[in-house]
Amino acid sequence: MPRISVKVDGIAYEEDVEPRLLLVHLLRERLGKTGTPAGCDTSNCGACTVMLDGKTVKSCSVLAVQADGSDIVTIEGLAANGSLHPMQRAFHEEHALQCGFCTPGMVMAAIDLVRDTPDPSEEAIREGLEGNLCRCTGYCNIVRAVKRGAQEMGQAVKSS
């Protein structure tokens, strides 16, 4: 069984993994990182989205062995020193979550989108989140939250 080392939310792990084990299962079943859920088996829903070396991936479409040597951030590692990431705060302010199942993936995807496009138009947000499905919100408040989160992320960059 191949041995891999990964860093997840700042903690280093070494694990022996079956070659077929998916990253999402490594996170959930082996490392107890259940903050990242899985909503499908065809890489369509985006619920499992995490940051891998700074870029989002659907963790159900990556093998654990492919993640060897990488630095992973999940929704659990996003809030720094107990204060929410501006995008998390924006989701709260705009009521951009209902059941919350899509939320971890949605927040990660939104942060990635804003890093690429700091001031996204509504259309850019909608296109950019196409790979993340939400069954509860109808997306209106998610779009509003991403706009607000983008503004606050921009301000955070400026003031730092």
Binding site: T34, G35, P37, T74, F91, H95, L97
Partner: peptide
């Protein structure tokens, strides 16, 4: 704003499969 959100936004969830 919802009391439910903080947990859900930080991955401290209790989905049955967790």
């Amino acid at each position: 704003r919802r009391k439910e959100d903080a947990r859900l936004l930080t991955g401290r969830t209790r989905w049955t499969d967790n």
